[in-house]
Amino acid sequence: MIQFPVMKKNATIGITAPSSGVPEDLHDILKSAIGRMEQKGYSFKIGETAWTDDKARSASAEKRAVELKEMLADETVDMIIPPWGGELLIEMLEHMNFNNMPAKWMMGYSDTSTLLLAITLNTGIATAHGTNLIDLRGEESDATTAMWEIVLSTEKGEAVTQHSSKCYQKEWDFENPTPHIFNLSEETHWQTVSGQSVRAEGRLLGGCIDTIRHLIGTPYGNVQKFREKYIPDEPVIWYLENCEMSTTDLRRSLVQMKLAGWFKNVSAIMFGRSPANMPVENYMAEDVYKALSEELDVPIAYDIDCGHMPPQITFINGAYAKVIVKNGHGTVLQRFS
């Protein structure tokens, strides 16, 4: 059975950096995010790793793991949100103890999703693929991003519904943030391989495919064991987003996931908008999606609100979801049971 944490009012948030920390010249934006959240009633416990970054990591793998474990064990810390993702989170997994891990919400995306998926697969504790802490520094949040609080406050046995955004951000403009940080300039349009509407149900699993693919073959990426222990006989809906890969690298990664059994009993796959998906010759992302849909005989939706072209829906690893994609719009109902 999946364990669902509950975010209490005026929660204390632990900030630790299991991947990249915030370099000194960007400390102001982390301070800004903390200040904005404190205005909303949150309090913080901030680890040393949040403020340091060198050689593509916040600290040594051991230090990152120790700090995270301390925050998990600290009863005054209610939930954990890293500043952002990074590159080398996978280094610290072998230093974690997934046995008897306290059930606390952990939220983020990009490389943070490596840790989120590993936690859910190894403990049955739900984790939240959603906004980074840094992106909560605005005067307000757009309607899609703002749903993270409602989603994480959902009680066990209850359900929460989210809808596709109206507009998304095509490119980052760090010098000119809007009151809600993102420059939402492009009209959102969820698409499907078939061109027809899609309806699917199943347990959600996913993250940034660039990084979670490296869990395959390790003790931290045993999807089959997770299925047998926590969601026997239930279908899975995968949500995936590509940060930096070409279309051929994406294809290789998806085939590896298929051969590793990650797509057994899958009811649908959803792909986030991507700043990458660089074509190789005339091999396009749509070709990748079409081939996978035909091989698995499952519906595939793409250009959904997930990943490095925000905003994004808060997807809960382990939640039972009902997804509808129709006429360019998407609806995601997640039940915490």
Rank of each mutant, 00 (worst) to 15 (best):
Arg199Ile: 05
Lys9Ser: 07
Leu259Met: 15
Ser185Val: 11
Val323His: 03
Thr76Gln: 14
Thr218Glu: 00
Val323Met: 10
Thr145Arg: 02
Glu241Ala: 11
Ser246His: 03
Arg36Ala: 15
Ile125Gly: 00
Met92Gln: 06
Met270Val: 12
Asn100Tyr: 09
Pro5Thr: 00
Glu281Met: 15
Tyr289Lys: 01
Val280Trp: 14
Lys326Phe: 11
Pro219Met: 05
Glu91Val: 07
Val332Trp: 11
Thr49Tyr: 13
Ile269Glu: 05
Cys243Ile: 11
Ala126Ile: 08
Arg57Asp: 04
Met284Tyr: 14
Ile300Glu: 13
Thr331Asp: 15
Leu88Trp: 10
Ala276Trp: 12
Lys290Arg: 15
Arg273Gln: 13
His163Met: 12
Gln312Asp: 08
Met106Arg: 04
Val255Glu: 14
Asp303Val: 05
Thr188Pro: 04
Met284Pro: 04
Pro235Gly: 03
Phe336Gly: 00
Tyr42Phe: 15
Gly206Val: 10
Gly130Met: 09
Asp142Phe: 09
Gly195Leu: 11
Lys45Leu: 04
Thr123Gln: 00
Glu244Cys: 06
Arg335Val: 11
Thr314Glu: 09
Ile269Tyr: 07
Ala319His: 03
Gln224Val: 10
Ile313Trp: 01
Gly330Arg: 02
Ala291Asp: 12
Thr331Tyr: 13
Met270Ile: 13
Met107Trp: 08
Asp173Lys: 15
Pro279His: 14
Pro82Lys: 08
Glu140Trp: 13
Tyr42Ser: 12
Val332Asp: 03
Asp210Ser: 08
Glu201Gly: 06
Gly207Arg: 01
Pro102Trp: 02
Asp74Gly: 03
Gly202Cys: 00
Cys167Val: 14
Ser32Lys: 15
Glu171Met: 14
Arg203Ala: 00
Ala285Met: 03
Ile15Lys: 02
Asp74Glu: 05
Cys306Val: 10
Val325Trp: 14
